[in-house]
Design a protein around this nucleic acid. Structure first.
Lengths: 228, 228
DNA sequence: TTGAATATATGATAAATATCATACTTTGGG
DNA sequence: CCCAAAGTATGATATTTATCATATATTCAA
């Protein structure tokens, strides 16, 4: 059983507010899992009773729409927590989580986390701030979805992927998504997504080679995302 | 200076978790305002330093998109709090609030609320739950925006207005929105909104008389909103 | 009360996006 | 290594949605 003290999740999540004692208690009751690429961590409607700490890898948070399309609401990467919303609300999760790469995660039961809420105000405030940050992001994202044409949403998504995940040595986006998944993030048909990628390529805003996507000038792409 | 103990906001918001002593302290430092229909409570980018309690009336929470369109993200009505997200995040508000009717609101400074966080765990948990509820709503809303065609989004919006605000004696939606505002909620052009209302009318899913909108069978309209 | 301003409605048309068809490319398992 | 399956690409077309034009209705202030 590894300790939680050095875990990367402490660097980036509310868990940074926990003290040594609390970390030891958490280490004691956590369960570690390996999730293979493509496997599901949990599914929309499921009851969770705890949170997942993402030690390594990336997953997509998705929701199936009535027409059978999978909308990717956001990506969660190492260092982040998963399932807080559901745990705090005491409701089933409203999104599914599926690994985009092999992942290492730890599950921490609700009882433990809720205990920290009562004894560590800094922790509960930090968690509250995290949820508030998610809410701001969601509202802003919603306005983009409602108001921006697909091509600008695609550009915006690419900029975000660049900022969140960076690039490989060959200058292409590090995060590997299929065209279908990218379309799922943008909220469009796969063919439309492919076509518009091709457009952006012709405009010189991105550069495609195979399924790799490189962004020669993020600021330029970002300006396009805002003003078209 | 009126007391907070009997205020309707206590019935519907996290403030229900405050005890008599805390309420007295709050009554002491709050400021009451009357906001006329059409007036702004705060504007995107502004710093708030507190929350507003909505004693009466309804306001729209909007965000201006890059193309100059006003997206209405949600409506807030009496009994609810306004500005929690911004206060907790210690960031400027990301949405503007504009009164749709004459309103009565109270402003409670941040220092007071944050103080309650430290002394009343039930209160902070309740506030956290409220934000989590908003987050779930926002994510679900986002998926609708990305995946549903305009006509279904319009139907969904009408169902929501029916459920949240009910009907007048003549069976029409109690909340009064212009076609332009309705279009702003749905995320479409005003003319498209008008046309699709007319369509829904012809299909018998709603009934229009002047600018009044009645819903003869909510379940039917709701089914249409889901499956088209 | 009246008329200008604003809101609502609808037609014509253009633009954006989805869908269907098909070809090409890459990938991974045998 | 090969080939079937999956993913990517692109054309043709249909559908959805926005835009522009104009007509009608409503509102509100002088």
């Amino acid at each position: 059983m590894s300790k939680c003290e050095q875990c990367i999740v402490r660097e980036f999540s509310s868990l940074k507010a926990l003290n040594k004692d609390e970390l030891l208690r958490m280490a004691d009751c956590k369960t570690s899992y390996i999730i293979k690429k493509g496997e599901s961590i949990f599914t929309e409607g499921e009851n969770l009773n705890g949170v997942y700490c993402i030690k390594d890898g990336v997953c997509k948070m998705t929701k199936l729409s009535a027409n059978g399309n999978e909308q990717i609401v956001k990506l969660i990467k190492k260092g982040e927590l998963l399932g807080q919303r559901s745990m705090i609300s005491e409701e089933p999760v409203n999104l599914s989580a599926v690994a985009l790469e092999d992942m290492q995660v730890c599950f921490v039961p609700k009882s433990e986390i809720m205990g920290f809420f009562n004894t560590n105000n800094q922790f509960s405030l930090s968690m509250m701030r995290a949820v508030c940050g998610d809410l701001k992001q969601a509202d802003d994202h919603l306005v983009d979805m409602a108001q921006k044409p697909v091509k600008q949403r695609l550009a915006e998504t690419l900029v975000q992927l660049y900022k969140d995940f960076g690039t490989d040595t060959d200058n292409s986006l590090k995060i590997k998504l299929s065209r279908e998944e990218l379309a799922g993030m943008v909220g469009t048909a796969t063919e439309s997504c492919i076509r518009l990628l091709s457009d952006l390529n012709k405009q010189g805003l991105i550069s495609l080679s195979g399924k790799k996507i490189a962004i020669p000038d993020v600021n330029k792409l970002s300006r396009f995302a805002v003003k078209g």
